[in-house]
Design a protein around this nucleic acid. Structure first.
Lengths: 140, 140
DNA sequence: TTTTGTGCAAAGACTTTGCACAGGA
DNA sequence: TCCTGTGCAAAGTCTTTGCACAAAA
């Protein structure tokens, strides 16, 4: 999905929620749509500013909250750092964080997903959501 | 392991680190050793106070940091709540959080552990630590 | 025009820290 | 005695919010 199309789908999601598309939000949606990493609120704010669209940090947080409520972005809360955000288009995946560089990589493993569901079921629960993060170091 | 024995092992760990055992720390270690749930700093503070041992919240945080640095307790950072702590005696386990009640249950699954290591290895990494949390709801 | 959004600064939640005094070893 | 620990309050970090003004629809 290209950047503009993704930004459009963010706009639709917000409109669906009865939220207005303002200059600030439009700019922020494009910054988010273009992000290939997993930026935090401050980084998104900086990128929007850099792109010439002044947006206050408060608005960044408010817009992120609205997008998250609509389920079009995901909030990632890794250990000991500010929350990061990513578009929620694709399929579910988990994260691997390089403790040396801070780089985040995504991965999926069907077997792990299945095992999680089984474990929960055995204990009498169903999974609402889960969080699996591998903090890793490059092998030498 | 009974409470006193566990508290003793905490003391030893601190002494090994060249940390003094003060009245406050001794009290806190006992509160921690007795905890069967996964209390946060404020709860530990309240329990110590209730037990008649006044400890400031700052000291609670400082002592928890020292214990964590020694590896005898683990800091759990679940989504959207203050950090919780648990003794690190037993074997490794992951956590299942009931989103309705906040109750935390522990579980282990050897297969998931192995799969995680495999995934990391395939991508050229080794795991430093990991975090697996299932946010669940009781099945109806 | 009506209603929601924005920016700012203040407040909030959790955690850490500087400093002067207290108290372990 | 010497040096670390303690309590307090202040500061720090990330995030949310009240309010008056601005701007979508």
């Amino acid at each position: 999905m290209n950047i503009e199309a993704r930004a459009q789908s963010f706009e639709e999601a917000l409109r669906r929620a009865g939220v207005r598309i303002t200059r600030q939000r439009a700019a922020l949606l494009r910054v988010l749509a273009a992000a290939e990493d997993h930026p935090d609120a401050a980084q998104l704010h900086a990128r929007a500013t850099e792109a010439g669209a002044a947006v206050s940090l408060a608005t960044v947080y408010r817009t992120l909250a609205a997008l998250e409520a609509q389920g079009v972005i995901l909030k990632l809360e890794f250990a000991g750092e500010p929350a990061r955000f990513e578009p929620a288009d694709g399929s579910h995946h988990d994260h691997m964080i390089d403790v040396e560089t801070g780089e985040v990589r995504e991965f999926v493993n069907e077997r792990i997903e299945r095992l999680q569901a089984e474990i929960a079921a055995e204990m009498g629960y169903e999974i609402v959501r889960h969080r699996l993060e591998l903090y890793v170091r490059r092998r030498t």
